[in-house]
Design a protein around this nucleic acid. Sequence first.
DNA 1: AATATGGTTGAACGATTGCTCAACTATTAA
DNA 2: TTAATAGTTGAGCAATCGTTCAACCATATT
Lengths: 121, 121
Amino acid sequence: MCAYSVDADRCDCSSIHGDVIEAVSEHMPDEDNLLDLAELFKVFGDSTRVKILCALLQAEMCVCDIAVLLGMTKSSISHQLRILKQSKLVKYRKDGKVVYYSLADEHVGNIFDQGLVHVCE
Amino acid sequence: MCAYSVDADRCDCSSIHGDVIEAVSEHMPDEDNLLDLAELFKVFGDSTRVKILCALLQAEMCVCDIAVLLGMTKSSISHQLRILKQSKLVKYRKDGKVVYYSLADEHVGNIFDQGLVHVCE
DNA sequence: AATATGGTTGAACGATTGCTCAACTATTAA
DNA sequence: TTAATAGTTGAGCAATCGTTCAACCATATT
């Protein structure tokens, strides 16, 4: 019980349905997986990054292209691309001065589609 | 062009691949949908909320049950449930003093599964 | 009515976030 | 070599976020 708690003593109430808690507790995914999952969704949880990923879903683009498309500065785009890079959601290749970014994960489209199903209701 | 920009003038560089930008721009989802999508993922982007949803994926639970399971206070759980309620991800029913929460959207499981595919690689 | 319990709420707090700005590197062209 | 352009980076700032705390409401029990 309290398997997902950093400090179980922080709970300020007693168990009402002990059987339910025990049953649910046994089937919860690993704590680490849940933390990683939240971290992934946090990356998706910004409109700038969603737009960037949505654009890259269609074509490889350089930083300037994305900046023009979204009407934002190169700097802010570059900052967000760094986050997407760290999350292994985008990859890049250099060609002279230009850095081309593209999707590193083919699941992004699926996740977005599932999300849009909820949004469009 | 710059369809997703609040203020297109904020862009500090000129178009390098105009054809790419134009093609991508035409196929981007509606701005509103992208904002809603980011907002949805933002809700998923917190480990406490992920744990709550993961628990409710298995059983209807009251606030105390969730608090005990996660080792947190009723107050913090209640605050997060309010956010999940506003996003129409959970629903509730009252039985006396007890408020039972359950999932309001059958897509949550699908979205989580897709996310875990990326995480577990 | 008084007490206890389940749950909600708003203010306050530290922590995190996203953008801006300025300085910087790297590559290309004159 | 100099200038221009593509991109990165770190500090700073306002805004947002999640938890705590205390007070509160609602229901049930005595």
